[in-house]
């Protein structure tokens, strides 16, 4: 299968196989009108199978959220057909509307149209807590 190389844009590589669509939705990529390729189950020497997203547009994207999902993801920034930057995403200090608080006693369970905000409280152990009730975020809430 051939997918053209991109001239200017972002390649999100080493996504755990099966997580590509989730990231596509989380980054709200359906709102873009540029060419986007979501490649599923590509073979990878590093992780066996992986997903890849290629976005063919030169624009700013808040990629911090990827650090919460998987810090092993690789982000490549492409300019004029050349890779100019390669990095792993940082753990973001705050997550807004990425995960939802599951504590039934939390105000977020009843108050409508409220942002679900989590704060990084322990970087070493990757612990996020709801800013309202301080409940710990569970990984499966993504």
């Amino acid at each position: 299968m051939n997918i053209d190389s991109i001239r200017n844009g972002i390649v999100i590589d080493h996504i755990k196989a099966g997580q590509g669509m989730e990231i596509y939705q989380l980054l709200n990529l359906e709102a873009l009108d540029c060419s986007i390729a979501l490649i599923k189950n590509a073979s990878s020497g590093k992780i066996g199978k992986k997903d890849i997203i290629k976005i063919d547009a030169d624009f700013e994207l808040d990629l911090d959220v990827l650090g919460y999902i998987n810090p092993d993801i690789t982000i490549n920034v492409i300019k004029d057909g050349q890779r100019v930057r390669k990095f792993h995403p940082e753990l973001p200090e705050r997550l807004t509307n990425v995960i939802r608080c599951k504590n039934p006693r939390c105000i977020t369970s009843v108050e409508q149209e409220i942002d679900h905000i989590f704060k990084l409280t322990d970087r070493e152990n990757r612990v996020y807590r709801c800013i309202y009730c301080e409940s710990k975020a569970k990984g499966e809430n993504i």
Binding site: S109, E111, Y132
Partner: peptide, 24 residues
Amino acid sequence: KEGAPMIASMHSTVPIINAGDGGH
């Protein structure tokens, strides 16, 4: 509900005192 006074403080123009939010 836990965190309700924090929501209140985000929308209030006067000081809010949390007089107890659930078990929090």
